[in-house]
């Protein structure tokens, strides 16, 4: 049915309202990030900057080396911003490693859930459904105590292990039903031709499951990149911070102004927003599969 007349106008208006709501924070962040502190101070009521500039990004991405016009006289720049390249590298290394590790581990387990179906494996699957509900803070307090005792605080590996464990259950929940939906006859044919079960997984199940693997991989990358609480508790030295931890470290800093903060926020959100828009279909499928199927 094609909506007509004023209903059509109403639907357009509703869409515009939703789009405005979704984009408002991004517009605000751009507005703040593209001008100087002085310009934000000079006009506290307008929606148009006196002059637009990319200097905030310049000073952040160069770690304070390139000051640009608006920071010429500035004497203060938080130490953590000067070490932003650590945060960028750490965030990338952690998110990529967690994505790869969870994909491998979850695929192996999902195969055993989909094809072997022994009692303890189904039990493991059941635990996974519940594991998603454990609040991270409950896990982080004991992990902090343990990591501290074994000298694993302030390490990239500690965060990778914790995030991998935290995101694995989600992947098993997404991948197992997908693997199970691949016809068993394909396995049987390959097995008659002499393939081992492991080869069947590598040569048949995984290639046929690329959409599900892409869904899960994209979701894991986004969650790993965005996660704050785990690296916040485990890593407090600037060399081991991720981007979200670095952003959190600036929250209480009254001398750091919104123009710099907004620029850092945009740098932190760009990779995941672009990834999600590029892999939109996969992310949509993964999110609904992870919620409904158990």
């Amino acid at each position: 049915m094609r909506p007509r007349g004023w209903i059509r106008v109403g639907l357009h208006a509703a869409n515009l309202a939703v789009i405005a709501f979704f984009l408002l924070p991004l517009i605000a962040a751009l507005f703040g990030a593209l001008q100087s502190e002085k310009s934000l101070h000079a006009d506290t009521r307008g929606l148009w900057a006196r002059e637009w500039t990319l200097d905030n990004f310049r000073v952040i991405l160069s770690g304070g080396a390139q000051r640009g016009a608006i920071f010429e006289q500035a004497t203060y720049l938080p130490d953590n911003i000067k070490k932003i390249h650590f945060a960028l590298i750490n965030s990338t290394v952690i998110s990529v490693s967690v994505t790869l590790l969870t994909l491998v581990f979850a695929s192996l387990t999902a195969y055993t859930v989909a094809r072997l179906r022994s009692r303890w494996i189904m039990w493991l699957m059941g635990i996974n459904v519940f594991a998603r509900f454990v609040p991270v803070i409950v896990l982080m307090i004991p992990l902090y105590v343990t990591f501290r005792r074994f000298g694993m605080l302030n390490s990239i590996w500690g965060v990778i292990i914790a995030l991998t464990g935290f995101l694995l259950p989600y992947g098993i929940i997404i991948l197992a039903p997908y693997f199970a939906s691949i016809p068993q006859e394909l396995d049987d044919a390959a097995r008659i031709d002499g393939c081992s079960r492991f080869t069947v997984l590598m040569r048949i199940i995984l290639p046929l499951s690329t959409p599900a693997l892409a869904s899960y991989g994209a979701i894991v990358f986004v969650i790993a990149w965005n996660d704050l609480l785990i690296p916040l508790i485990l890593n407090n030295r600037a060399e081991f911070m991720t981007l979200p931890v670095m952003i959190a470290s600036l929250v209480g800093d009254v001398f750091t102004f919104f123009n710099l903060l907004m620029a850092i926020c945009l740098i932190a959100l760009a990779p995941t927003v672009i990834l999600v828009l590029v892999l939109r279909k996969f992310v949509v499928r993964g999110l609904s599969a992870g919620a409904v199927k158990g």
Binding site: L23, L26, G32, I247, V251, L266, L269, T272, V273
Partner: peptide
Amino acid sequence: TKFLILVPYAVPPIANGLIWSFM
């Protein structure tokens, strides 16, 4: 709208919070 729906999902929560504190 459908195209943009996933944008908020991808924004790091801490960045989201900070942007709103500017707003």
